[in-house]
């Protein structure tokens, strides 16, 4: 087994979901509110991982665009839960040394007096290890 396939399988395994349940209806992408912002879409994440491909996903900006709104999770007819897969790929990227997507230096410029703490906490949880 090549490295890409092994990594894809590892990521799928800790995602806790099975992309092979997918019947390729595309409803995850259809219901995704942030489809237009993504270079690779939820259904492509499912399809790539189901066939053991992950390289392109690791480079994709989609992993920072997913809102974790769980619309795809709720509406997938096959219980695939695509957001879990996207999150698993993101974890495997930001888990690498020096691969943080969000650095604390960037925070002050974005602060405004009303911004709730939860936004900052959440952003660090998602984009930094």
């Amino acid at each position: 087994m090549n490295n890409e396939k092994a990594l894809a399988e590892e990521v799928v395994s800790f995602s806790g979901t099975n992309p092979r349940n997918c019947m390729k209806c595309g409803k995850c992408s259809a219901t995704c509110p942030t489809f237009e912002e993504m270079d690779l879409h939820p259904h492509e994440f499912v399809s790539y991982l189901a066939s053991g491909r992950i390289e392109k996903l690791l480079q994709s900006k989609t992993i920072y665009k997913c809102l974790s709104c769980f619309a795809c999770v709720e509406r997938c007819p096959r219980g695939v839960e695509p957001s879990r897969l996207i999150e698993a790929v993101r974890d495997s990227v930001v888990g690498q040394k020096g691969a943080d997507y969000l650095s604390p230096d960037r925070i002050p410029e974005r602060l405004d007096p009303d911004l709730p703490q939860q936004a900052i906490t959440a952003a660090f949880r998602k984009y930094k290890k």
Partner: peptide, 12 residues
Amino acid sequence: YNVDYIKGMVGK
């Protein structure tokens, strides 16, 4: 009859 068949399930 020019019915427009589109592959993909509707999201919302």
